[in-house]
Amino acid sequence: MQYALLAYTPAEETDRATRPIPGALAARLDRPDVTGWARLHADESATTVRNDEGRMLLTDGPFIDSKEYLAGLILIEADNLDEALTIAGEMLQETRPGTAIEVRPILGGHFRGA
């Protein structure tokens, strides 16, 4: 079964684009059970598109204003939720303090190879 690991991190002072992914986490992302991943720019780079009764409404910034923001997502293959949580826990050990990883089963979709 596929799971999405949604990584949330506190707002930061540094430019995420210039900070490398920690070596141990980068190695973990290269394992066979990781089927894809994306690192996202900071939340202020977001634009939210909403359906306002059939009209498109654009808003600068993320969908939700919070202390933490979605920093990236990782797609994994795991036999069950317990295995997915183990994988998320291993990855969490390689992240910055304050990072949280939300684990969600994927209902369906289409994923293309890079």
Results as ranks from 00 to 15, higher is better:
Leu75His: 03
Met91Thr: 08
Met56Asp: 04
Thr18Glu: 12
Glu90Lys: 15
Asn51Glu: 06
Val34Cys: 04
Thr86Lys: 13
Val49Asp: 04
Ala100Met: 08
Ile101Ser: 02
Thr48Glu: 07
Gly36Leu: 01
Gln93Cys: 09
Arg28Lys: 07
Asp33Glu: 15
Leu29Arg: 03
Ala7Asp: 05
Ile101Lys: 04
Thr95Met: 15
Lys67Asp: 04
Ile74Asn: 05
Arg31Glu: 13
Thr99Trp: 08
Glu13Asn: 11
Glu83Val: 13
Thr47Ile: 14
Leu81Tyr: 09
Glu94Asn: 03
Leu75Thr: 03
Arg28Thr: 00
Glu44Phe: 13
Asp43Trp: 04
Ala26Ser: 14
Thr59Asn: 01
Pro105Ser: 14
Gly108Ala: 14
Trp37Cys: 05
Ala42Gln: 11
Thr18Cys: 02
Ala26His: 13
His41Ser: 11
Gly72Ile: 09
Arg55Ser: 11
Val103Tyr: 02
Thr9Trp: 05
Glu53Met: 09
Ala114Ser: 08
Arg55Gln: 13
Gly113Leu: 13
Arg55Ala: 13
Arg19Met: 14
Arg55Ile: 09
Ile21Arg: 02
His41Lys: 12
Gly108Pro: 08
Phe63Glu: 00
Gly109Arg: 11
Gly89Glu: 03
Ser45Glu: 10
Ala46Ser: 01
Thr48Tyr: 07
Ala114Asp: 07
Ala4Ile: 10
Arg96Gln: 12
Ala27Tyr: 00
Thr47Asp: 01
Arg16Lys: 09
Pro97His: 03
Arg104Ile: 07
Leu73Gly: 00
Leu25Met: 12
Leu85Trp: 10
Phe63Leu: 09
Ala114His: 08
Arg31His: 03
Ala84Gly: 05
Leu70Ala: 00
Gly72Phe: 03
Asp30Lys: 00
Glu44Cys: 04
Ala42Arg: 10
Gly98Glu: 02
Arg96Met: 07
Asn51Gly: 01
Ala7Asn: 06
Ala42Trp: 03
Leu107Met: 15
Thr48Phe: 06
Gly108Lys: 10
Leu40Val: 02
Gly61Asn: 10
Ala4Glu: 05
Pro10Ser: 00
Arg39Glu: 10
Pro22Tyr: 05
Ala88Trp: 04
Ala26Asp: 15
Arg16Ser: 06
Met56Ser: 07
Thr35Tyr: 00
Asp60Pro: 03
Glu94Arg: 01
Ile106Ser: 04
Asp52Ala: 13
Glu53Asp: 15
Pro22Asp: 06
Ala38Cys: 09
Pro20His: 01
Thr35Gln: 04
Gly36Phe: 09
Trp37Leu: 02
Gly89Asp: 01
Glu44His: 14
Leu6Thr: 02
Pro62Asn: 06
Ala27Arg: 07
Pro22Gly: 10
Met56Arg: 11
Pro20Ala: 06
Lys67Met: 04
Glu102Pro: 03
Val34Ser: 02
Ala4Pro: 00
Ile21Ser: 04
Asp33Leu: 08
Thr47Gln: 12
Ala17Gly: 05
Glu53Ile: 02
Tyr69Gly: 02
Ala17Tyr: 09
Glu68Phe: 04
Ile101Gly: 06
Glu12Leu: 12
Glu13Lys: 10
Ile64His: 00
Arg39Trp: 10
Phe111Cys: 13
Arg55Phe: 11
Thr14Glu: 09
Lys67Phe: 00
Asn51Leu: 12
Val103Arg: 04
Ala84Met: 06
Ala38Trp: 06
Ala71Glu: 00
Asp33Thr: 02
His110Leu: 15
His41Val: 10
Ala42Lys: 03
Ile21Asn: 01
